[in-house]
């Protein structure tokens, strides 16, 4: 009785081990199942989804115009002070003084990609880009000014 138990114990154990070995052996022979992505090589056809949040950018059109009115809604929405909007007063064609964005400072190193600034923006001036390779040698390079030099507010954006 004892011997029977002893032997069935051993055969059961060996059986379970062989089952595991069959599984790994299967993957050893079926190398097509490999899921490795050869990352730097597949950069061109990687294709990130359009909602992927890599960094905040401010799109400009061909006339070097953006849609940011300098309302600082994004600055208020940001939970960790990533965005600092420096405004200035511009005199427009009718001779009225109007608030406009001078420098849109974006601290990539503080950003957690929470998307709250984009949700908050009333004029869709900023959006998330899919670029994700942010590493640089100097931290100061991560502080970016999003509006290009000499750029203007697009007409019709209030």
């Amino acid at each position: 009785m004892f011997l029977k138990e002893y032997i069935s114990d051993i055969t059961g154990a060996v059986g379970s081990l062989l089952k595991g070995m069959r599984r790994t052996g299967y993957y050893f022979l079926h190398r097509g199942e490999a899921i490795t992505q050869q990352y730097p090589d597949n950069r061109d056809h990687m294709g990130l989804p359009e909602r992927f949040r890599g960094e905040v950018v401010m799109p400009h059109n061909e006339q070097n115009e953006h849609r940011c009115t300098g309302c600082t809604a994004c600055e208020l929405a940001c939970p960790n002070g990533t965005i600092k909007v420096v405004t200035k007063f511009e005199v427009n064609a009718e001779g009225k003084r109007k608030k406009a964005v001078d420098r849109f400072i974006y601290h990539l190193e503080l950003c957690t990609m929470c998307n709250l600034c984009i949700e908050a923006c009333p004029t869709d001036a900023i959006k998330m880009a899919q670029h994700f390779e942010h590493s640089v040698y100097d931290r100061s390079q991560l502080t970016k000014i999003l509006n290009r030099p000499e750029s203007k507010l697009q007409d019709g954006v209030e």
Binding site: P49, M113, C114
Partner: peptide, 14 residues
């Protein structure tokens, strides 16, 4: 990633 825009810290809830 496709629906929420991030893989780990989604911040999908409002």
């Amino acid at each position: 990633e496709e629906t929420c825009g991030a893989r780990l810290t989604m911040n999908y809830m409002v």
